[in-house]
Simulated scan of single mutants.
Amino acid sequence: MALKQLGPDNASAYFHQFVVRGKEESESIRADILTEVGDGQRRLPRTWGAKRAAKMIGRSEGWLRDNDPDVPRNEAGHGRWTLARINELRKKAGTLYQRPAGSEPIIMAASKLKGGVGNTTFVCHAAHYFAMQGLKVLVWDLDPQSSATSILAALVPDAHLEDEDLPNSALLEDMSLFPGCIRKTYFHNVHLVPSNSALQDLDLKLASQQQSDSEFQIAPHERVRAALDLVKDNYDIILIDCAPALGMLTLNALMAGNALINPMRPSLLDLASYVMFTGSLQLFYQELAELPLKYHRIVLTAHKNTTGNERMENRTRAMYGDAVLTRRIMDSEEISNAATKLSTVYCLEKPIGARETYNRAIDTLDQCYGEIFEDLKRVWEMEGEDV
């Protein structure tokens, strides 16, 4: 009797067609986006008008006009300022934030056990927010899904990245290769260590080296920390986007980090997952007690302001107290819209949806990241005082 089935006889050939079609469609979508927001090949830098630029600098529009009369103008004759230009004017005005002498860069792992909590959304928007405050930011995409790479570099990771673009060889064979993996992004002062699906192999090979007598002198779970030691002094904050699993790469991120952020949706299943995750964290830090955490917070994401969300938020705050950020990231259609443009809300020149929706998204993000920034400034100030 013939086998009755609803699937293919040759699964490999069948899914190969999916791969080809997926890459073609991804390339087509990217080309459409870059034609809309760039020159067809790359995304152009975000610019701001006089009112917003003056606010970012901390001076009046009159001061801005007097001190930068030669700013490039759009077709309507209005001045448009890039972030690089704004930072130069901040230096002139004495308003550019400088991390205190003697303080160390923050290396913040964004980690969770459950997927779908907004981890990558948090990291990408955090990178752009901190850069807008004048900080130098590095993002390391340690998730094989590579969503942070897609958003921050506006590319199709599996199509556009070669082996030499990835940190795999650096972490497995020659650490000196690592600085060459760092690339600039379209957003000023945001650099990226990219990823693609090959990162899955890296996770497995590091785990294999943990069990073998590898000639590599650095322990497999300390490779990310060793790599960042080569470049960390070039940055104020390093954000690591971890996969939703406690594999070797996530353990590396925890080893490297001196700060930890845990995004979590206000739902029962997310809370239950986080309870399990904290058990793993407790065991991890118990084994590595010499690792201090300068900063830890839970951030509630995709909050819908429903009765159920409010109830779970109250329960989470009752359990974890001050470890939960005061500000929440509210659920926003504009945040979702931005991702369809391989972008963050901060990079949008104009709203995709309604202006009111865009303003609410900016407001909820600014409040959350502003709270974190104030916390980090306190950490840096305390370190600077000890010098």
Rank of each mutant, 00 (worst) to 15 (best):
M248S: 09
M248Q: 11
L249W: 11
L249D: 05
T250S: 14
A253N: 12
L254C: 03
M255Q: 15
M255H: 15
A256N: 11
N258A: 14
N258V: 08
N258T: 07
A259E: 05
A259T: 03
I261L: 14
N262I: 13
N262K: 10
P263D: 00
P263T: 09
P263F: 01
M264A: 05
M264T: 15
P266S: 11
P266A: 11
L268G: 10
L268V: 12
D270M: 01
D270W: 14
L271M: 13
S273L: 06
S273Q: 10
Y274S: 06
Y274H: 15
V275T: 15
V275E: 14
V275C: 11
V275W: 10
M276D: 06
F277R: 01
T278K: 11
G279D: 09
S280D: 05
L281T: 03
L283C: 06
L283R: 07
F284P: 02
F284C: 09
F284E: 09
E287Y: 12
L288C: 02
A289W: 04
A289H: 05
A289Y: 05
E290R: 11
L291C: 03
L291K: 12
L293V: 10
L293I: 12
L293G: 02
K294F: 08
Y295F: 10
R297M: 04
R297T: 10
R297Y: 02
T301I: 09
A302G: 10
A302N: 07
H303T: 04
N305R: 07
T306A: 04
G308Q: 04
N309A: 07
R311G: 13
E313H: 04
R315T: 06
R315G: 01
R317H: 11
R317S: 15
A318L: 02
M319A: 03
M319R: 01
M319S: 07
A323N: 00
A323K: 13
V324S: 00
L325V: 05
T326G: 02
T326Y: 06
T326S: 06
R327M: 04
R328E: 00
I329Q: 06
I329D: 00
D331S: 08
D331K: 12
E333T: 13
E333D: 12
E334P: 04
I335E: 01
I335C: 09
S336H: 08
S336D: 00
A338R: 13
A338H: 09
A338N: 05
A339F: 06
T340Q: 08
T340I: 09
K341P: 07
K341Y: 14
L342I: 06
T344V: 04
T344F: 12
V345L: 14
Y346W: 08
